[in-house]
Design a binder for these strands. Structure first.
Length: 424
RNA sequence: GGAGAGGUGGCCGAGUGGUCGAAGGCGCAGCACUGGAAAUGCUGUAUAGGGGCAACUCUAUCGAGGGUUCGAAUCCCUCCCUCUCCGCCA
């Protein structure tokens, strides 16, 4: 959420910065609302101060011997009642205005960082670097779902029977590889100071609002009809809420978490895209990195969290490229984002496998996560990065490791986890 | 799901209508004492919003919301949560 003070004092800045995302906004109405709200608050609290003064005076008079129903006390009571009614009116107005304002503010995305490159769509994203040598295209190379079907690593058709399309059942060595990857990633990050966390994957509306998924993207998540609970679309949601409404001592920062969770997404509007295989599913596994950090250190933290995600790809010997998202392609809560795209030789393309964002104080304000340093508090900064999407990592391993004999060779780092250097 | 108990500041805990944002203790910070430390003493130590260059000041908050009252942590109503026992259960 954006700062209300910024809205009151400098809405032009917001309009201009959100313009970089391709939005054109007129915030004059909202600014007026925010100013009215503050005026109401001032009037109301002045009245309340007067009411408090009268209340004390009545108490003193009665204690001093005045009869509770004497004219002078009665007059004060009447005055007190008058004020009470005025306050009630103002308060109602103020609350309504505040709710309306908040509702509107919650739908505005984060301001992009000044560093983020301007652009309208993914075509304007900026490639930062490439790592590894992409395997050359050869005719016999298969796509990951072809390999997985041939080696019976997953079951697509029968998963429709269990759930519906875009669900997959991993079997045998496929299931084992998924598990090996999760453990490998958790261990790798755990060894670098990340604290492992296994959170609830049903989350309430407040949690989804706190990280930015609600109210605007309700149609992207699965909801449990009878409860105020949703299936989490990413571990970012429960981990943000792990510290919701908290004040964290500055010396404890940064707090670095690594969380493995299944993730659930409706993938509304992606009909027909990536319908085969492990790329786009309603349920997938992800190992997520998450930082709560001091606002002054978030820029370097962003470099670090991205490097930590890259380290997984490098350990798995998977060629990738790092791109920076332009303002038009960035997510709702992000102020700056690097995507990591892994090379899929079967498909002959780079595909997103990690997204590493710094959100500034955007989520912290929604979730009321502050830090205390000396006197007073300030909002922390939050960062998140996939480290990595597990299903897509499996797809990449299958395509990059496929051999002429039909088997798949796994990178050395994974052998202790998988128990074999080869599938098939 | 049924029955009971309870929710007060970072923690413990007092407070049943008035000057209570709240005794006392613990913890923490500063100062004094000390060669240094411990012990001791003094001082300070919640959050949010508004005003002020600042010192400071106003408002709200004792689980949440509503009500009674000139005045509510305290009385009334509703809800939420936690704990214990029973039931169910991996």
């Amino acid at each position: 959420m954006l700062d209300q003070r910024l809205l009151r004092d400098n809405p032009e800045l917001i309009t201009q910065q959100l313009g970089r995302r391709g939005m054109s906004l007129d915030l004059m109405g909202l600014q007026l609302m925010a100013r009215q709200e503050r005026d109401l608050e001032e009037q109301r609290s002045n009245l309340q101060a007067e009411g408090n003064r009268i209340g004390k005076e009545v108490g003193l008079k009665i204690k001093g011997g005045a009869a509770p129903n004497s004219p002078e006390v009665q007059e004060l009571r009447n005055e007190g009642n008058r004020i009470k009614h005025q306050v009630a009116v103002l308060e109602e107005e103020e609350k309504a205005l505040e709710a309306k304002l908040r509702e509107q503010l919650l739908t505005l995305p984060n301001l992009p960082s000044p560093e983020a490159p301007d652009g309208r769509s993914e075509d304007d994203n900026v490639e930062i670097k490439r790592w590894g040598t992409p395997r050359a295209k050869e005719d016999w190379l298969e796509e990951h779902w072809q390999i997985a079907e041939r080696l019976e690593l997953f079951e697509a058709e029968r998963s429709v029977r269990i759930a519906q399309s875009r669900f997959v059942t991993l079997l045998g060595q496929g299931a084992r590889l998924e598990r090996a990857l999760i453990n490998f990633m958790l261990d790798l990050h755990g060894g670098k100071g990340y604290r492992e966390v296994l959170p609830p994957i049903l989350v309430n509306s407040a949690s989804l609002t706190g990280s930015g998924q609600l109210p605007k993207f309700a149609e992207e998540s699965f909801r449990c009809a009878e409860d105020d609970l949703w299936l989490t679309p990413t571990a970012e949601v429960p981990v943000t809420s792990l510290h919701r409404d908290e004040v964290i001592p500055a010396e404890q920062l940064p707090l670095k978490y690594v969380a493995y969770t299944p993730c659930f997404r409706r993938e509304a509007g992606s009909y027909g895209r990536d319908t085969r295989g492990l790329i786009r599913l309603h349920q997938f596994n992800k190992v997520e990195l998450y930082w709560f950090c001091h606002p002054e250190h978030s820029a370097e933290a962003h470099q670090q969290i991205t490097a930590d995600a890259e380290a997984v790809l490098e350990a798995l010997e998977l060629p990738y490229r790092k791109i920076e998202l332009c303002t038009g392609d960035m997510g709702f809560s992000a102020s700056r984002t690097y995507d990591l795209e892994v090379w899929l030789p079967g498909a002959g393309a780079y595909r997103e496998i990690s997204s590493c964002s710094v959100c500034g104080d955007f989520q912290a304000r929604r979730s009321a996560i502050r830090m205390k340093e000396g006197k007073g508090t300030q909002l922390v900064h939050t960062l998140n990065g996939s480290g990595l999407a597990v299903g897509r990592t499996m797809a990449a391993l299958l395509e990059n490791g496929q051999q002429v004999d039909g088997s798949v060779k796994l990178p050395a780092a994974l052998v202790p986890y998988f128990g074999s250097e080869r599938i098939g």
